[in-house]
Amino acid sequence: MSFRLDKLTVRHLAAAPHAAPALHDLDLAIAPGEQLALIGPSGAGKTTLLATLACAHRPAAGGFSVFGQEPWALSQGARHRLRARLFLAPQTPPLPPRQRVVTAVLAARLPHMSLWQAFASLLRPGDPDAAHAALARFGLGDKLYARVDRLSGGERQRCGLARLLLSSAEALLVDEPISALDPALARHTLATLQQEAAERKAALVCSLHQVDMARAHFPRLVGLREGRIVFDAPREAVSDAMIAALYENDQVQPHPQHPHESPDRIAVGACF
């Protein structure tokens, strides 16, 4: 298994002592090559679960293994090597604003570089062709030497995903990758992520607010609410009633495009 969670509970370090856990009593198994979407209302624990899978949060209770290893039983060095086999793409990628896009994308290779190689890459990008190829798959080939702070929100999201393509990760953890994209570009982006995961035979776990996209693109859906798994089922078994119950009394109902977003656009014929 890529990931196995047994009665897993996670608490945020800054949470009040008597606050409810961020994740509570989760049982979940994800096989290599499996692709699943995490859905649920805001605050359900989707981002926390992705960070936990990436070994960024230490569980408070329960069992947790990654590629058959228990990360928090390993030495710090061994845990670092285990993390290098994972790639977590946050919704807002931490890209230095004054950096060139080419440098930001090639930073995906830093975990496998020596200190000297990492320093040299800041002065002169080592493989701009690879960075261009990764960006082009997201329709950003013309942004290779642009500054990060000149990109739109959606372009920054896709720049972060281009980093994923240059990693050697064996499991891909992606948080809200299409939140700032129009429907055509969203489909394009999801198709590229899924193609990359399939070619690597890597697990792909993707959190989405766009329930229609999750149901259309992912064979397995995991519904989270208040830090608990409400359902874990093949998409064919997830009914409209189950979705409605998942979001019951939630002030923000799921829909394809949030009205406050200013989506990026891409030609429909340009496919990832």
Rank of each mutant, 00 (worst) to 15 (best):
M1W: 04
H12W: 14
L13K: 12
A16T: 03
P21Y: 11
D25Q: 12
I30S: 04
A31Q: 14
A31D: 13
P32E: 12
Q35H: 11
A37D: 10
A37K: 08
I39R: 02
G40R: 11
T47D: 05
T52M: 08
A54T: 10
A56C: 06
A60G: 13
S65I: 02
V66K: 08
A73C: 09
L74H: 12
A78W: 03
F87E: 01
L88M: 11
A89L: 11
P90L: 08
P93D: 09
P94G: 09
P96G: 02
R98D: 15
T103S: 09
A104M: 05
V105W: 05
R109Q: 15
P111L: 11
H112K: 03
Q117N: 09
P128R: 05
D129H: 10
A130I: 00
H132Q: 13
A133L: 04
A134Q: 08
A134G: 08
A134R: 07
A136P: 01
L140E: 09
V148Y: 00
Q157H: 03
R158E: 05
C159H: 00
C159W: 01
G160N: 06
L164P: 06
S168P: 00
P177T: 04
A180C: 02
L185I: 08
T189W: 02
L190M: 09
T192H: 07
A197G: 08
R200M: 01
R200L: 02
A202H: 03
L208K: 02
M213T: 11
M213R: 07
A216Q: 10
F218T: 06
L221N: 02
V222P: 01
R225T: 07
G227Q: 09
G227L: 10
V230T: 09
D232A: 14
A233Y: 01
P234C: 03
E236N: 11
V238E: 01
S239F: 05
M242C: 01
D250P: 00
D250A: 13
Q251R: 14
P254M: 04
H258L: 15
S262P: 00
F272K: 07
F272Y: 12
F272D: 10
